[in-house]
């Protein structure tokens, strides 16, 4: 009974500490989603793949989204013609490399500032590298879901705004796209409608946008709050009910601890704004490298995120993303375990 009480107190304390950050993250991402036009951002992105990947990874500072919000934004970036390295850099880094997540990580790991800096640095480096690797894929459409692929080179935003993006001359009009895969892609009515709908967000009158912001906030609180409750419950139960010897033997090995925390990160799927509090409950028993592995890998790939990623990428591309992110995280945090801490 006492054990149960401890677990419950732990569970509540995680929530009490995490919910303010969740609320802040949700409000911020909502505000920016509805009040900032990312098309202008794309226009200033460099063409160089490495630089693009790096800058893409840093867009998170403008769009502080956690890993549920980043997928829709990355998707829009791609559809509006952002180069692949930019979009993928953003996709992987934005959930971590943003002010709110840095703040919450700082709150949790005040005593170990190196965790905060390394989390930031490693996430940025890994996202940039993967974004760069993906620039080798000349025709991105073959790894995207058809729904995204067929609108990628769309001329629509350009023709409407008269603007800055390069236009493939093939794609300015007509209903059929002949991709390099030789497969014609049809721009069907529903997709066009969807894009029309999307376009109107930025131009809607203020009361409507505020209403959208409210709806968005409530929905994200509901979804992410639900995941947070489950994640906190898992953390509390693991910490209180699993025998300490067992956790210590797992958590002190330089390799096993990293693998365990990466697995946990993928399974628990906790939002990046608050995952540092989850990791904190393992700080006393797990190596610093493994905590970093959790904090770096979790926001990039997790079970919940895979569902979301499937709205952009085909399975094959997700496997690549997963393998690259997992390897890079594993190697870098193992290095930290063995040579730094």
């Amino acid at each position: 009974m006492n054990q149960f009480n401890n677990a419950f107190t732990l569970f509540l304390s995680l929530l009490v500490e995490a919910v303010p950050f969740l609320l802040l993250g949700v409000l911020f991402s909502g505000l920016l989603l509805f009040f900032v036009d990312e098309r202008k951002l794309i226009a200033v992105m460099p063409k160089n793949a490495l630089l693009g990947a790096l800058l893409g990874s840093l867009i998170g500072f403008l769009f502080p989204v956690c890993e549920c919000g980043n997928v829709p934004v990355a998707r829009r970036l791609l559809m509006q013609g952002a180069p692949a390295p930019v979009a993928i850099g953003f996709l992987l880094a934005a959930p971590t490399v943003n002010p709110i997540v840095l703040w919450s990580t700082w709150v949790a790991f005040r005593d170990q500032p190196e965790i905060v800096f390394l989390r930031f640095g490693l996430s940025l480096a890994i996202a940039t590298i993967i974004g760069w690797v993906f620039s080798a894929q000349a025709d991105l459409r073959s790894i995207l879901q058809p729904g995204v692929a067929c609108v990628i080179p769309t001329a629509k935003p350009v023709s409407r705004q008269g603007a800055e993006q390069p236009i493939s001359p093939l794609l300015q009009s007509g209903t059929f796209l002949l991709g390099q895969s030789g497969r014609p892609l049809r721009m069907d009515a529903s997709e066009l409608q969807a894009d029309l709908l999307e376009d109107t967000i930025a131009s809607k009158p203020l009361p409507d946008r505020l209403n959208l912001l409210l709806e968005n906030t409530i929905q994200e609180l509901r979804e992410l709050g639900g995941v947070l409750v489950l994640g906190s419950a898992i953390a509390a139960v693991l910490q209180v009910f699993v025998p300490r010897d067992w956790i210590l033997s797992l958590g002190q090995g330089p390799v096993t601890s990293v693998l365990a925390m990466m697995t946990l990160a993928a399974v628990v799927s906790i939002c990046s704004t608050v995952d540092s509090f989850f990791a904190l409950s393992f700080a006393a028993t797990f190596t610093s490298g493994s905590l970093l592995a959790f904090l770096v890998f979790g926001p990039m790939i997790d079970l919940k995120g895979i569902g979301l990623l499937l709205s952009i990428f085909k399975g094959r591309a997700i496997v690549y993303l997963f393998l690259l992110a997992a390897q890079l995280t594993f190697l870098s945090t193992l290095f930290i375990n063995l040579h730094v801490s």
């Binding site: 909502g30 989603l33 509805f34 549920c68 919000g69 829709p72 709908l197 109107t200 967000i201 809607k204 409507d208 209403n211 959208l212 912001l213 709806e215 968005n216 929905q219 994200e220 509901r222 979804e223 639900g226 995941v227 919940k304 569902g307 979301l308 709205s311």
Partner: peptide
């Protein structure tokens, strides 16, 4: 206000 013109929730996939 009830006729919300666009459900912003469509930006996310629901998990539950």
């Amino acid at each position: 206000r009830r006729s919300v013109p666009l459900d912003p929730g469509s930006q996310h996939l629901t998990l539950f």
